[in-house]
Design a binder for these strands. Structure first.
Lengths: 242, 242
DNA sequence: CGGCCGGTGTGAAGCAAGTCACATTCGCCG
DNA sequence: CGGCGAATGTGACTTGCTTCACACCGGCCG
């Protein structure tokens, strides 16, 4: 299927390169190395809901998202599930299992229709060794992830519903910091509830309270943050007030 | 556990070397490099309760524990605190801020009287660059940490008190896997409660229930796990039963 | 157009865990 | 030994969040 020669293959020979070049991990690589990496990458289109990998699978690949978003989540024995992260276009995921070779720690599923590419561990590891700077980049990535995850633990243990919800909204607006004002987050309340680990009903009730105060506006499958300041305050306040 | 019977006891020029040589991160370094690292390391004794660093501090060092245990925790505005990890003899901590140069994400305090040594970022980073294998070791360490922390998020979001407590006990026994049977964990109930994010009273009541079933035995400042199997089952069961 | 499904909004009732307020026991140290 | 502080044990009351049971609304699709 991949008859890569000089760049002419299927639909998106350059989109891979574009994603890699834009990503902080790979942006400093020389063009030749980038090109080689592109040849390793297998392109793939996914329908919403498609499973990419599951918790416990052997972790043999690194995945980059070209378009759409991917949901990283875990599901308990009794069916409740928690969303650990949402990966958007231009981001990569699956690096932990790629790097240490152990099982995947969570499930990854296409949250929208997605375009991704996959780099195999067997090809990638030697590549990393041939590019010492890359190891440092991965260290930075892992540190970032660790900070994010520690933050989550902190939120979940120390904060109550309003605090956690506020934190989640702040984090989400910071990710899509496209427009400075009028932050619209495309997400369902169900999804938010799974990110903060509380029920949809509770989340909805809290959001309504904030809507009457003009802190947020609720739309279909989206939340617009109108005034981030009081939310920021709540996020930092431990477990006070609402 | 560290029996200092023979010559190398209090003077410690060698204990540094011993700790480094035993640690998975450094064990593969050649003796010369180890020696150099030892010269960088500043030795220090701490009384129980002493602060090593605080959340938000600039992260300029890596710390290794020679004896005693160090508590990694966070405290919210209203005084509640959560223990993220306990670092024992032979382990290292503070690597995230060391590696990415940003602020510390949590507080570190001596949980018992401690003997530690400290390696400065300015000296350590060039050293890492001179030892490419070391970067890979750090990647592995970070992956391990990330798995641990993700696990914590999973526990806290998906499990109820019995599940979380059981998970915590299992984790703790696995850390000190000294004797196969008769796992004694030296920890106060207050500390456990801060690790699982619930109150001491609730923890105590649950532990008593298990004690009557002979799953655990409670001692002063210690818990003995008598039968790990039912606990293991609970830890994996999501949020069922007790 | 009408049906239906996924997302949203809301109230009543239940319960797991927190809070508070103690009593008890242990181990250390003067 | 005796006393004091830290760790443990326990019950009565409160509460924040869940559960359950719905009604509504919008948008897509045959």
């Amino acid at each position: 299927m991949p008859q890569d020669k000089t760049g002419e293959t299927r639909a998106f020979p350059n989109s891979k390169l574009a994603v890699l070049r834009k990503h902080p991990i790979f942006c400093d690589l020389d063009p030749e190395a980038l090109d080689q990496l592109c040849r390793y990458a297998k392109h793939s289109m996914l329908k919403r809901g498609a499973a990419i990998f599951s918790k416990g699978d052997p972790g043999n690949s690194l995945i980059a998202v070209i378009s759409g978003t991917v949901k990283i989540s875990i599901t308990s024995a009794d069916g409740r599930s928690a969303i650990l992260n949402l990966i958007g276009a231009g981001e990569i995921f699956g690096e932990v299992a790629l790097l240490d070779g152990l099982a995947r720690t969570a499930d990854a599923t296409a949250n929208t229709n997605c375009e991704i590419f996959v780099i195999d561990r067997r090809e990638f590891l030697p590549f990393v060794r041939s590019q010492p700077a890359l190891a440092m980049k991965f260290i930075e990535l892992l540190c970032t992830r660790l900070r994010w995850t520690s933050d989550q633990v902190e939120q979940v243990i120390l904060q109550n519903l309003p605090g956690r919800l506020a934190s989640a909204l702040i984090r989400l607006t910071e990710k899509h910091k496209t427009e400075p004002a009028g932050r619209t987050i495309a997400i369902t309340q169900q999804e938010i509830s799974e990110m903060v680990g509380m029920t949809r009903e509770s989340i909805n009730k809290q959001l309504r309270v904030w809507a009457t105060r003009k802190w947020v506006r609720l739309e279909h499958g989206a939340i617009v943050v109108l005034d981030a300041k009081p939310l920021q305050a709540l996020a930092e306040a431990g477990s006070e007030g609402d």
